[in-house]
Design a binder for these strands. Structure first.
Lengths: 197, 197
DNA sequence: TCCTTACTTGACACGATGTCAATTGACACA
DNA sequence: TGTGTCAATTGACATCGTGTCAAGTAAGGA
């Protein structure tokens, strides 16, 4: 196994990520992370100013591991708006499970830690741009329904694809990841694509 | 026992509700509530075993104030499934703002307080029954789309109408309450009602 | 008068975050 | 061989919020 080679900071991030992914979102304590790394709780503060700091750094670490935002940039191969919508939803559906734990933790400290809130908001804002791009592509194709303005449609898609909704549908409703992706694509079509006739 | 002034327990519930409604969800402390009532923090524990207990009691208090679940029971006047869906969404849209504060607080302690989690889950389960009834009405009318089974459609509607989604759309996207109700009805039709032609 | 009930006062325990001072151990360089 | 630096340790302590406890007080009823 990889062991002492990695610098401590990275070991901390890896431990944090692992705990957040398996464990329950916000219940990961500083002492848990320290224990997993094999150092003292106080030593964490030699690398990160606060818990919020560490959590935010962990999200960047995730991006580093499995290439981050660029995965959400609409594929150039998508010819039609509909295709683009499908591809975007698929990419997001694949990305969501990877950020679920850390996202839950960040959301839980939203009210108390402005930095953590900002970090999560930034992520969601980036994701919203993907939604907007897909909707605008539909609009250019004249396949966007007349029922919603592009902005309203973006609001809706953005909300539909939220982490909380993913959580509810997979955890509470028991949808598989494939179910989620398929049905989200289906829902998006029904909602946003004008009937062709 | 005295019939003149409100009993303390009720004063506590009223204060709790008021703080939860105006203030930010989980940041309402026991001492805040006590201060608002004009009693000691410790005195709260003469009436409620724990903070979770008090919060749960506050939800029941809300029900008592503006008649609770029965408002979500599908109106008998709704002839078609579509009508029933509309009425249900309208009722829920009117109910949501009233339970927003308390719901946020309950959700925030979900991971730490099983009783609070159970109380919120019960509410959501009741709401889900309303979703299911509306979907089944569509199904009986043969107006439910073939794309989703009744259960899947219920999952979707239930998720769509979640408190978090309401929060995101009204707070972050700036939708008015009327916008929310109108667009949710529109979305539900697009999603669940088979094209008639 | 005595009793009960509701509430107060003041202290304390716990768990979590965050801080600080003093110390240890290793490695480098000279 | 010594000197300095850096990372981490140890142990104590502050702060906040929840929850508990013992003793005291004020009001009303029998």
């Amino acid at each position: 196994m990889s062991s002492g080679a990695k610098p401590t900071r990275e070991k901390i991030l890896a431990a944090s990520l692992e705990l957040l992914e398996s464990g329950q979102g916000n219940s990961v304590r500083m002492s848990d992370i320290a224990a997993k790394v094999g150092i003292t709780r106080q030593a964490l503060y030699l690398h990160f100013r606060t818990r919020g700091d560490l959590l935010v750094a962990t999200t960047h670490y995730v991006d580093e591991l499995h290439g981050g935002d660029e995965r959400l940039i609409p594929s150039r191969t998508a010819k039609t708006g509909i295709e683009r919508l499908d591809v975007f939803i698929g990419a997001w559906a694949g990305f969501l499970p990877e950020i679920y734990g850390i996202g839950k933790a960040l959301l839980a400290m939203r009210d108390t830690d402005p930095e953590a809130a900002a970090a999560w908001d930034k992520r969601m804002q980036d994701m919203r741009e993907g939604c907007e791009a897909a909707i605008l592509a539909l609009s250019r194709d004249k396949t966007l329904t007349a029922d919603y303005s592009p902005e309203q449609a973006t609001d809706i898609l953005w909300t539909l694809l939220s982490l909380r909704n993913w959580e509810q549908l997979t955890v509470e409703c028991g949808w598989s990841r494939a179910d989620y992706a398929d049905r989200m694509r289906s829902m998006a079509r029904r909602l946003f694509v004008a009937e062709a006739h």
